[in-house]
Design a protein around this nucleic acid. Structure first.
Lengths: 113, 113
DNA sequence: TAATCAATTCGATAGTTATCGAAATGTCGA
DNA sequence: TCGACATTTCGATAACTATCGAATTGATTA
């Protein structure tokens, strides 16, 4: 709730991630079904209907709803509600920011550590 | 055990991550204390002693040992055992590979999703 | 050998969460 | 309004795991 409510800011210039937000993102990504769901959304190019998502994962509707909520809470996706249907899309910049954060940790190599 | 035993390969050219390994990495990173530990190791430049690590985190020795084992099992760090002391260092290429994987999911933007 | 220190293992506990079926809510068409 | 359908909420359960203190293992030094 907090993460998605909080203004996430722009997309183009690697947004800052607080410790809490970084942890929330990693936890959201650390579940296999959730990651696969996110992959589907990403690869779809355009917003994915829940029915499509449902077909791709071997889980119940209740569980899918739970995961969608988690992804939204982490600020990874946006949900466009159109009557009966909900459409899922990636929130731009977030994955990039996390990737940048991880890459920035990479070592410059210590000769014979 | 499996992830660290399994040959992880080189560092320079983004190694392949299986689904299972990807999940293991994300789970390892998703714990705040563990992430902070990894950050310390990364920023240390050269192998970090456990005592140093211990000072940086508000956890018991037993818990630290547990986290170190998890990081090693995920293949994120290497442990050089030198008598009584253990020294921790980043395994090169792993964070980069994960970062690349995440960045690759980023959307090319769908006009008016 | 005995004492000391680093690190691990053990056993237990508390908190978290993925999962489901069933019930509820909300939307649309007949 | 009624029924069909999409999604969510509820309540319960099972599995996982972060955490600790205590006991253990292993290495160094007196």
């Amino acid at each position: 709730m907090s993460a998605s409510t909080q203004a996430v800011g722009n997309a183009t210039r690697s947004l800052r991630l607080t410790r809490a937000r970084r942890t929330a993102l990693l936890k959201a990504l650390a579940d296999p079904h959730r990651f696969e769901l996110l992959e589907r959304i990403a690869k779809a190019g355009c917003p994915l209907g829940c029915a499509e998502a449902r077909k791709a994962l071997p889980i119940s509707a209740a569980t899918l709803s739970h995961h969608v909520k988690e992804l939204e809470a982490a600020g990874l996706i946006e949900i466009r509600r159109e009557g009966k249907f909900h459409y899922l899309s990636l929130r731009p910049g977030v994955l990039e920011a996390l990737a940048a954060l991880l890459a920035a940790l990479a070592p410059s190599a210590c000769p014979r550590g």
